[in-house]
Design a protein around this nucleic acid. Sequence first.
DNA 1: AATTATTTGTGCGTATGTATC
DNA 2: GGATACATACGCACAAATAAT
Lengths: 229, 229
Amino acid sequence: MAGGWQDIRDEVLRRIQTRRWPPGSQIPNEAELAGEFGVARATVNRALQALAEDGWLERRRRAGTRVAAAPQRRARLAIPLIRQEIEAGGHAAAHRLLGTAPGPAPAAVTAALGLAADAEMIQVRTLWRADERPFAVEDRWVNLSGAPGFDSAPLDRISANEWLVRHAPFSHGTLEYAAETAEPELADLLGCAPGAPVLVLERHTFGPSAPVTFMRLSHAPGHSLKLEI
Amino acid sequence: MAGGWQDIRDEVLRRIQTRRWPPGSQIPNEAELAGEFGVARATVNRALQALAEDGWLERRRRAGTRVAAAPQRRARLAIPLIRQEIEAGGHAAAHRLLGTAPGPAPAAVTAALGLAADAEMIQVRTLWRADERPFAVEDRWVNLSGAPGFDSAPLDRISANEWLVRHAPFSHGTLEYAAETAEPELADLLGCAPGAPVLVLERHTFGPSAPVTFMRLSHAPGHSLKLEI
DNA sequence: AATTATTTGTGCGTATGTATC
DNA sequence: GGATACATACGCACAAATAAT
């Protein structure tokens, strides 16, 4: 007996994946499954809830539980610190502060964060390296009222990324990956040819009471986002 | 009160996000929280389990529950059918079969799928459109022994993508997003300039007993992968 | 349109197992 | 070994949603 409800989850998942319970079909109700597996109904409930949360099952009261018509798996994308991402690849991470600039952010940035155009912000530009090779250029705007104290962070010693994770409250945000081609200035920083394809991550971060930061991370060519599902 | 254990999850999450319980700190044990919230310990347990699964908490027996040092959020990336992705954007989805070709796949494909170089496979190439505008080109190799019956699928009427979701068992796979520049042939199909940046998704899919398919989806410029966290 | 029956959602209290300090 | 805290189970109860009557 290893897993309790997880065993039941796995067995149900097996029946879905092997099409013993094909997409769209209704599966036995909780009480029946509890009888079959010899467990309490609450145990079956816990297993089926987990599968529903992962998109395998659709459950409705009275109507019962059925296998999702197109069981779309949901990958879990862990969003690491840039440093961790580099180190997870087996490289030594280093960051170099390219510059900071207090002052107004571009209108597109303040608008997306829901801020007034004259909100007090700081721009920070950072070059990340993996084993001395350019890894990514980070362009960031930080909203001071959403990240109090950021203006006195020692950005030469701790990256803006890490300072914010450690000190700024965080509640939700958006992520967007897109492909772009490297402008000459970016290409120079990344050590690639102008026009090379770069994977760009844009991220908006909001705290419980105020927007925190907008970040644009332009990865060196060859970088990819890998997921297991 | 609406949510039961979800209310408790939300309140605990609020305390984490507002740094009342800062990263790395230990939170009260289940029994204490149950007392504070006036619920049974099992209810607290359900809430904390959910937060642990989302990466906010780290729980160890006897050691207690603490806030993750760097609470890295895990976004759930739902991988939809291409058709659904297009329609979710408010466009009409259409697919055109560019061609099929039985025969051996490139060595890189068979190797990544764990197949012998001479495995019986079929290549399918599809152009997807959103409101008549090119959306993506899908290059796919299907392993016949992992997807029995695929060779007689009516690919002019149902896309390979949809046929496989509906008929082939699957258990796990990999996803990889990368930026590339459009080759002339691809640019022609996508209606963009050669060298334009395209977001490419590569996907390996495995069934419970055999590899199923490898897919390479090259999106038209401007497409991005959006996530909420 | 109102009622009933079914199914899931969630809770409670309690008990036992198990990893870990 | 003992104590602690999480992991999970059981059985029961009731609420909420909703398909069927």
